[in-house]
Nucleic acid binder design. Structure first.
Lengths: 233, 233
DNA sequence: ACCTGAACACCGTTCAAGT
DNA sequence: ACCTGAACACCGTTCAAGT
C-alpha cells in the first residue's frame, strides 16, 4: 500500500520513556482486529506493522516471531472466556450446560481464529488450564470421582472443539441442508451409501433444516445423559 | 536445493502421448508424502515440483492452485477410510464403536493433515458424505428415528473431530500429565481454580497417566450411553 | 532498550513462449 | 495440451546500524 512512497517521516531510534509506541498488548490487539476483519491469512507481520505505523522489524522486539503473535491471539480468546461471569445453575446439569455454552461462545466470538485456538488448546498455557474450572466444579458438585471428572471433562471439551470447528468452517449460523446434503446424496451411486440415502430421503420430506444452536443443545443433552448413565448418577 | 545449478536438462514442451510425467494423482501422492514426512508447511508448490522433477508451473496444469492440492489431500484421507472394510458387530453399539474407531484411525494415519482434513470436512465433498454411512447404518439398526440419527451422528462425529484434533496436536500417544498438568496447576494462584486444583491433587496420588486409546474408548462409552438414554433405547 | 533499513532466502501465481 | 522460464508481488526473519 505504502509501496512506492518514501517511509512516513517517523523518527527512528529509541523513544523517550512513556513514549513507546509499541507493546505486546497493542500488537496483539491490532493483530486480533486484522484477523477478525480479514482472516488469519491477512495478518502478516508486514501488514501488522503497517497498521501500527511502525517498521516490520519493531514487532520482533516485543514478540519473538509470528508464531508467538498467533499463540498470543489464542491466549486472548481464552482470557476473554476466563473474564466472563462463571456459570451457575440450580443443578449440576445446568451448571455444566452453562460452562459449555460459555466455552462455545468464546470460540464463536472469533471464528477466524477458532482453528488456531483449537490447535493451541493442546499446547496448553496457564490461561487455558484455568478455563476448565467451571466444568470441574459442575461435575464435582455432581459427585463424580476425580478420575471420572477428568475423563468426562476431556470428552465434553472434545465435543465442543469438534462442534466449534464445524461451526467456524461454515459462514451462516443456519443453513438449509436440502440443497447441500440432499442434493449431494441424491447424486451418489445407489450402492455406496444405502442407509444414508434412505434416511436423508425420509428427512427430506420434513425439509432438512439445521440450526447450530439446536445441534449444540442436543449434543450436550446426549452428553449429560451419557455422564449420568456411564458414571452412575 | 537445486538453487544455483542450471535446470536439469529435461526436454520442455508437450510430452508424447503415454509419456506424461504428471497427473493429478501423482502430484497428490507426492504431496502426501511430503506432508507426512515433514509437515504441511514443508509442502510448497516449488518443493513439490522439485520432488516430481518438474517445473513449479507444471503443477498448475493439473490442479488450479495450492488450495486445490491441499483439498485433494484431505479427500485422499477420506477415500482411504471409505476403502477400509466396513465395521460389523453383534449389536448396534459394537457396530457404532467400529465405525468410530475406523474414522479415528483414518485421521490418525496422517496427523500432519488432520487439521486440514477437519477443516475441509465441513466444506463437504462426495467422499466425505459417504464416510458417514456406517454411522447411519448402526443407528438405523438401533431403531432411531431419522432425525435422531442425523443429530446423533453429528454429535458423535463432532466428538471424534475434537478428540482427533487434540491427538494430532500432541506427539506421543501416551503422555504423563504429571509434569505437565500437575506442575502447571500447582503454579496457579489458589483462588483461580480451586476445584481443578483439588481434583488434580487427589488424582496426583494415583499418578496422572493418560492414554489416548482409553480416553477415546471412555468418550465413546459416554456417547453410547447418552444416545441410548436420550433417544429412549 | 527500542526502532529502522537494507538484504536474504524464500513464497504462490501470471503471463508469454516453447513443442 | 502440456511443460518451461522469467518475472511480479509478496512473505518471515537476520543483521548491522542508528539514538
Amino acid at each position: 500500500m505504502v509501496k512506492g512512497g518514501k517511509a512516513v517521516a517517523g523518527r527512528s531510534g529509541r523513544p523517550r520513556v512513556g513514549e513507546e509506541r509499541l507493546s505486546r498488548d497493542a500488537i496483539l490487539q491490532a493483530a486480533l482486529r486484522i484477523v477478525d476483519d480479514e482472516g488469519l491469512d491477512a495478518m502478516t507481520m508486514r501488514r501488522l506493522a503497517a497498521t501500527l505505523g511502525v517498521n516490520p522489524m519493531s514487532i520482533y522486539h516485543h514478540l519473538p516471531n509470528k508464531a508467538a503473535v498467533v499463540a498470543g491471539l489464542a491466549e486472548l480468546v481464552f482470557a476473554e472466556l476466563n473474564n466472563s461471569t462463571p456459570p451457575t445453575g440450580e443443578s449440576w446439569q445446568e451448571e455444566l450446560l452453562g460452562a459449555a455454552n460459555a466455552y462455545r461462545n468464546a470460540l464463536r466470538a472469533h471464528p477466524n481464529l477458532a482453528f488456531q485456538v483449537l490447535a493451541d488448546a493442546a499446547a496448553v498455557s496457564d490461561v487455558v488450564v484455568v478455563t476448565v474450572e467451571p466444568f470441574y466444579r459442575a461435575l464435582d458438585r455432581a459427585g463424580l470421582a476425580p478420575r471420572d471428572i477428568f475423563e468426562a471433562v476431556n470428552t465434553l471439551i472434545d465435543f465442543i472443539h469438534g462442534f466449534s470447528l464445524g461451526e467456524a468452517s461454515v459462514r451462516a449460523e443456519t443453513f438449509e441442508l436440502a440443497p447441500d446434503l440432499v442434493d449431494r446424496v441424491s447424486k451418489l451411486k445407489p450402492g455406496q451409501a444405502p442407509t444414508l440415502i434412505r434416511i436423508v430421503d425420509e428427512l427430506g420430506a420434513d425439509g432438512l433444516h439445521y440450526e447450530f444452536d439446536d445441534g449444540f443443545a442436543i449434543g450436550l443433552s446426549v452428553f449429560v445423559a451419557g455422564i449420568a448413565a456411564r458414571f452412575g448418577l
